[in-house]
Design a protein around this nucleic acid. Sequence first.
DNA 1: CGAGTTCGAAGAGACACCGT
DNA 2: ACGGTGTCTCTTCGAACTCG
Length: 325
Amino acid sequence: MLQNSTRLLRLLGMLRSSPSWHGAVLAERLGVTERTVRRDVDHLRGLGYRISATPGPDGGYSLEAGTTLPPLLFEEDEALAVSLALRTLAASGVEDVEESALSALVKLEHLMPPGHNRKARAFFASIQKLAQTGPKVDQAVLATLAGGCADHEQLQFNYRDGKAQVSQRTVEPQGLVNAESRWYLVAWDVSRADWRTFRVDRVVPPISSGARFEPRSGPDKGDLAAYVSRSVSTAAYPVRAKVILHAPMQALAQSICPLVGQLAPLDSQRCIVHTGAHDLHTIASWLCTLEVEYDIQEPPELLEFLRAMNARIDRTLGRAIKAAH
DNA sequence: CGAGTTCGAAGAGACACCGT
DNA sequence: ACGGTGTCTCTTCGAACTCG
């Protein structure tokens, strides 16, 4: 005969594994009488599990979807994976989710054996990333947008652009992209009849229009991440530049963030980068940090800007050298 | 076709037994 | 003594079946 608590967990497991169970079958599997099964079902109901019982020839017990999850048993690697996922979520920049993830993490780590706990901490410490610097995103907004993507539901919202100008949008949401501490929505803008990228933190609570739409094949052959990358690195800015870099693309792919510039190969020794910014100064400063040689293709003003910058640096260095002698 | 009957299953009370 | 369990018995409920 199984111990009481073990039997309750087994009973729960059985109820979850099949839509309906006869009391007699449960009793046989658990090695107890039907009366004891009824008492156990009562215990589970007392703990808050919604177990429905249907009388009659086709009757039986079934576990309904409830408001709380039944107890879960994790293997060591599963617990480690959940712990790591919660740590990542706790720093995801999504409001409410961060708090919930942290709360769940505290509960999980309290229950994990000390050895597993140390392993999880060590693992996460080795992949520690930079502190979250992006804007906070409302979980409800994110959930509504994700729901619209999944259910092909047209959404309406007010969008505040980079110049704080608010416009009303009706969109057919295609997908969400998380990049560099920010969330982006890729959607077909109905009134503009074109694809658009929206910063989720600038979306004022969206509502469903109730209308469904036929799914479209997304921009960039459905590669939303590439589309967002291109949109936010160049298209969104008033100043755009095209620069040839004297290094193979593979050598630079790791060091140049996709949100800063779009790389494309030219030949085995060179590649070209398309980038954008609010002003020439930002692009020039970025170019100065590159440890490769480059040729400015566009715009000619960038070359002038770099020339002036170079002259200033020359004069500064000249004075410094003179003072040292 | 509707009312009554039958059957099978859950629900529950009372009591006894057993192990801790 | 107490909690858990088994046995017996009765009630309730819903579906299937029967009959006028």
